[in-house]
Design a protein around this nucleic acid. Structure first.
Length: 843
RNA sequence: GCCCGGAUGGCGAAAUUGGCAGACGCAGCGGACUUAAAAUCCGCAGGCCGCAAGGCCGUGGGGGUUCAAGUCCCCCUCCGGGCACCA
């Protein structure tokens, strides 16, 4: 019985043993000091939210990063491979409500559970630099940054329309609203509310965030495009239409509007002679003036606002049916003095551009639709040229020249835009402008479990900063979590009531907390100096490690975490803390884990638990399957039989290596290179080294790396009879097995460690140098060259690997099959691609 | 509507530069070992026709370039993702 056990690959015995040994040796995965002299490599996977359970998406994410980290260690780099916890956030509060456990306790025990899972999976993290965002020693620096940003005008408070998630009972940033729903609560529609909120002025960096994307060539184009769209730069012109109150439709009514202006934003100022109305957003300040004395108009405008709100909540502003109301007022086109009516319309957005447009139905699809519906005049001011000639209205392209545009007739659209901008500037009724879709980042949250915003409201002094030496503003631990509205901190008098730092008088603390995306915007800097209690981190150390060489995570953060992080880096740079402009050099977004055709999720009931996989097959099998089943950037279809297959493969490796380890050990004294009994195996071995090394250098098709190792093992095993008979020289056996274990080390760390020891090697396999492929040994000396006739495969011929075209041609023509197929026909042409193929064109 | 991906055996996939389509694995089938099974090992395996030799077809569909196309070009379909009355 005991003997039988010894013959079986038993991850349940091997893995815990090594887990213990690794836990006892924290230096194994620890980053070294910058002075170590090795080149640095910072590999990072996105930190998890401590839900209490790793899921397969995590296993995949971290298996990819860990493989890379291990490879880089073996390549001799000083590797920083840290891990932490995105530990603030709503689920802790919900759990508190449900189970009556305080958020901190719930979070702490979840972290402990997930850390155990990480360790059981054999992930090589440097736990000495662990960062937990809900600890005061971390979030105090959120507060510190907040104050620095406040001082620079980058953090500010304003009342505005904000997204309110009724499920979260808090506001959300624009980035956190997906299709009108909360990013955390799929299917929960977000309301619009008017609230006073804290914002970070990310728009101050809009242009730099956009420009920087061009240089991020280590990022997937997809992510860069998504960020470009999100920033939404558009070049155009601000133009003032003059309010005209001299000639009211109904006679002699006077108003106080004389000489005032309506500023509109347009990307097509060249079409301004075709403007037949001015359209205001219903929330526009002027509209409020117009409606002040006109209850009927006000009711109509309110209806427009309501329509917008509904459309916004439905997540589809585009589907709104266009409605508008004439205000009875008129505006004067500054270029030609034309008087056009002012309307209010529901398709004009208050928060984009100036909240007002000039309506040019001849050359804008939306304006065309609107003008058609309400019978407003439609005029042509651009005459199509070239391809577009004769095009009907609305004519949207810029391939044309101006007509019906006074002195500007005949100019191209582009020339006219330039010219008209110059005139506007000269006559002081407008200018060229750039507008962004990106809005400032709303960071206030009416929640408990987050970083308290370090501000104080004093009746006398107004907004007062918490002085640096009073940081951190600690989150009170004793608090009743309820579902009632408003910031929970507001119900904790000991927290709220405070002496004003300026006047000492009674004051109130800010009771909102920060968005948890603040935590993750800079956590990776903290890893470099996680214990620093005087600063968020030491700039010199950060400078050594940054930028992150490789960041790995899900694409769902393309315009959340990843844009906030870039913003934060630029702010820190401008604060003089760091020298890099961007946090991440290379970004990799791995695909989702799918099962039965859908993303694994509790609601779909198709979740596979990592714990169960580890229990049944071992961590190495689960991890390696996650790498084998698909290339890392594609979605992965989880098939349990596939894990079993990988497990079978690892068992074969285990049997092979343990069986021949004694031979390998006996071969340790001599060199293998010149031995000839096993040249074919050595060739395969060195080809495999080359393939896997190349993949680590960029392509990252780890699925084919695993396949290559399988092929290698298959070939070694095919020579089992010779191996058993001792016909393969011991030094060759040694090189084969030793290298096999090294190649396996990034993918199956437990088995590699076990077999490394079995082979009599001293020290960690992680410290052994990555094998180098010897091109001499890898070279084939004979090749099979396919021979085609008219592009169809007929036969293959064996030729020397260095055979020239002539020799190959001769060999091909000599073939029996070729002879019979060409008999009686004319060989028109012979294509020979040395090393590749021969194709005979025959008639 | 615009912008990115993707579509290859029964299934997950491979083909890195235009050069043998289907590596590797799963499931399947046959055999060895076994009293039997499990495990393991050996072999077969894209489809259709054929006893076989062999032939024909085949990478979502249609066209094209080329001696040669999964790969390049044009058009189309479907699936996934992002953006969208953003003036």
């Amino acid at each position: 019985m005991a003997e039988e056990n010894e013959l079986r690959y038993d991850p349940a015995a091997i893995e815990p043993k090594w887990q213990q040994r690794w836990a006892a040796d924290p230096a194994l995965y620890a980053a070294e000091a910058p002075s170590c002299g090795k080149p640095k490599y910072y590999v990072l996977e996105m930190l998890p939210y401590p839900s209490g359970q790793l899921h397969m998406g995590h296993v995949r994410n971290y298996a990819i990063g860990d493989a890379l980290a291990r490879h880089m260690w073996m390549r001799g780099y000083n590797v920083l491979h840290p891990m932490g916890w995105d530990a603030f956030g709503l689920p802790a509060e919900n759990a508190a409500l449900k189970n009556n456990t305080p958020p901190r306790g719930w979070t702490t025990s979840n972290i402990a559970a997930m850390k155990r899972q990480f360790e059981r999976l054999g992930m090589g993290f440097d736990w000495a630099t662990e960062v937990t965002t809900c600890l005061p020693e971390y979030y105090r620096w959120n507060q510190w940054f907040f104050l620095r940003m406040y001082e620079k005008g980058l953090a500010y408070r304003k009342k505005s329309k904000v997204n309110w998630c009724p499920e979260c009972c808090t506001v959300l940033a624009n980035e956190q609203v997906i299709d009108g729903c909360c990013w955390r609560h799929e299917g929960t529609k977000v309301d619009q509310r008017d609230l006073v909120q804290w914002f970070f002025r990310i728009t101050a960096y809009a242009q730099e965030l956009l420009d920087g994307l061009d240089k991020l060539d280590g990022w997937p184009e997809k992510v860069r495009t998504m960020q470009r769209n999100w920033i939404g730069r558009s070049e155009g012109t601000d133009v003032d239409f003059f309010l005209d109150d001299a000639r009211w439709e109904d006679g002699d009514e006077k108003s106080n509007l004389a000489g005032r202006r309506i500023r509109v934003f347009t990307t097509r100022v060249d079409t301004i002679f075709g403007a037949t109305s001015v359209q205001l957003a219903p929330q526009h300040a002027l509209v409020a003036e117009f409606t002040a004395a006109d209850a009927k108009l006000k009711a109509q405008v309110d209806e427009l606002i309501d329509q917008q709100k509904k459309a916004r909540e439905a997540g589809d502003l585009g589907a709104i049916e266009k409605h508008g109301i004439p205000t009875g007022r008129f505006a004067i086109n500054p270029y030609n003095g034309q008087r056009v009516p002012i309307w209010v319309a529901n398709y004009i957005l208050a928060d984009y551009g100036t909240g007002a447009i000039m309506s040019v139905p001849g050359h804008d699809e939306r304006d065309f639709e609107f003008a058609t519906k309400y019978g407003l005049p439609i005029t042509r001011v651009i005459k199509p040229v070239g391809k577009a000639e004769g095009a009907e209205l609305p004519f949207l392209s810029e391939d044309g020249v101006l007509v019906n545009s006074g002195e500007y007739n005949g100019l191209s659209c582009e020339e006219a835009q330039k010219k008209l901008q110059e005139i506007a500037l000269e006559k002081k009724f407008g200018e060229a402008t750039v507008t962004y879709r990106l809005k400032d980042w709303g960071v206030s949250r009416q929640r408990y479990w987050g970083t308290p915003i370090p501000m104080i409201h004093c009746e006398k002094d107004g907004l007062v900063q918490v002085p640096d030496d009073q940081l951190p503003v600690v989150l009170p631990e004793r608090i009743e979590i309820t579902q009632q509205g408003g910031s929970p901190l507001g119900r904790v008098p000991e927290f709220v009531n405070v002496a004003c730092p300026k006047c000492g008088g009674p004051a109130r603390r800010e009771t909102d907390t920060m968005d948890t995306f603040v935590d993750s915007s800079w956590y990776f800097y903290r890893y470099t100096d996680a214990k620093n209690s005087n600063a968020p981190f030491d700039s010199k150390i950060a400078q050594y490690w940054f930028p992150i060489d490789q960041y790995i995570g899900g694409v769902e953060h393309a315009i959340l975490h990843l844009i906030y992080s870039r913003f934060w880096t630029k702010v820190m740079r401008d604060l003089g803390l760091i020298a890099n402009d961007e946090p991440v050099h290379r970004l990799f977004t791995q695909g989702m884990v799918i099962k039965d055709g859908a993303k694994m999720s509790k609601s779909k009931g198709n979740v596979v638990s990592p714990d169960e996989m580890v229990a049944r097959f071992g961590a190495d099998s689960a991890r390696m399957y996650a790498l084998f089943a698909a290339p890392p950037d594609r979605d992965l279809d989880w098939q349990e039989d596939g894990v079993a297959g990988v497990s079978r493969f690892l068992a074969r490796v285990w049997r092979l290596v343990t069986k021949y380890a004694p031979v390998a050990r006996s071969g340790a004294q001599s060199e293998s290179k010149t031995q000839d009994g096993g040249a074919a195996l050595l060739r395969k071995l060195h080809q495999t080294i080359a393939k896997i090394t190349l993949d680590f250098e960029g392509r990252w098709h780890f699925n084919t790396c695993v396949a290559a190792i399988m092929e290698l093992v298959n070939e070694i095993q095919a020579t089992n009879a010779q191996l058993a008979a001792g016909e393969i020289p011991a030094p060759v056996v040694r090189e084969l097995l030793r290298t096999l274990v090294l190649l396996l080390a990034p993918f199956a760390p437990y088995l590699a460690a076990e077999l490394w020891e079995e082979l009599g090697e001293k020290g960690a396999v992680l410290r052994a140098p990555w094998p180098v492929s010897d091109p001499e040994l890898a070279r084939e000396n004979e090749l099979e060259i396919p021979v085609q006739i008219n592009g169809k495969l007929v036969t293959v011929v064996r030729v020397a690997a260095d055979a020239d075209a002539k020799a190959i041609e001769a060999a091909a023509l000599a073939g029996e099959k070729v002879q019979s197929r060409t008999a009686g026909k004319t060989v028109v042409k012979i294509i020979v691609v040395p090393g590749k193929l021969v194709n005979l064109v025959v008639k």
